[in-house]
Design a protein around this nucleic acid. Structure first.
Lengths: 123, 123
DNA sequence: TCCATAATTCGATAATACTCGAATTATGGA
DNA sequence: TCCATAATTCGAGTATTATCGAATTATGGA
């Protein structure tokens, strides 16, 4: 994933309603939910909901699937995992000593790393 | 982590310059970088850089540490991990069959889950 | 004490995002 | 074919965010 794509995905998640929708869909799994079902969970007008769904599709975080009169939206897990990987990429790589090995995708610095003091002359 | 905190953190990351700063600090580790050092990596005016750093501190994504005339900023790994956990929480929990067990913090649905078709009458 | 440097705050401007009523498109069933 | 329902698009008003020059605060060293 590259930076602009990541910014788009993050912006798509950085909104109360959209974040709720995304988490809902992540929990539901690949089968997804129709707009009507989603609207039962988040309180907003149809127009606003449509706007938010469009934003998320555009950011490639969710995918629409037409089924009769309904459109089912499901989470794009690949994109989500790509985003998480992008954020944690090369965690503590320039430090080398203060990080524990990545566990469960988390970046975990050692608790009490001694921070070297740097004088005014040389940052 | 709760929703509003997550939205704040995501908004703080959803901007090209701030995302670059955050990734830089994640890679540097707990010792962090001074504003001057950060400014060598991202091209923007001092005022704008200060504005962005403030946003990220306010979202609890980075932490300032004064050292003489310098202020060193470092990534808040706990907050980052909390955010990643919040996004992937209960992945596919309502589905139950289509997801592989979480590996390395990633949510991985099985490749070709058969999606059940639902008729117009009952979403 | 005085100066140079590190970094922030202020204020104004430009750009982008959110919300929703009303109108529109599309589909399945009577 | 015609109607009810599912969902989107349009347009306009409001609010939030980003940028940066100039002024300000704070620190260490001469």
């Amino acid at each position: 994933m590259e930076s602009k794509q990541a910014v788009n995905a993050l912006a798509a998640l950085a909104q109360e309603t959209r974040l709720a929708i995304f988490r809902l869909l992540v929990q539901v799994g690949p089968s997804g939910l129709s707009v009507g079902e989603i609207s039962a969970d988040v309180k907003t007008s149809p127009a606003t909901l449509s706007f938010h769904l469009k934003e998320m599709v555009h950011a490639d975080l969710i995918e629409p699937r037409q089924d009769g009169r309904f459109i089912f939206y499901s989470a794009n897990y690949a994109q989500m995992n790509g985003l998480l990987g992008f954020l944690t990429e090369n965690c503590c790589a320039k430090d080398g000593v203060s990080c524990l090995p990545m566990t469960k995708g988390k970046c975990v610095p050692t608790p009490a790393t001694k921070i070297k003091r740097r004088t005014a002359n040389k940052p």
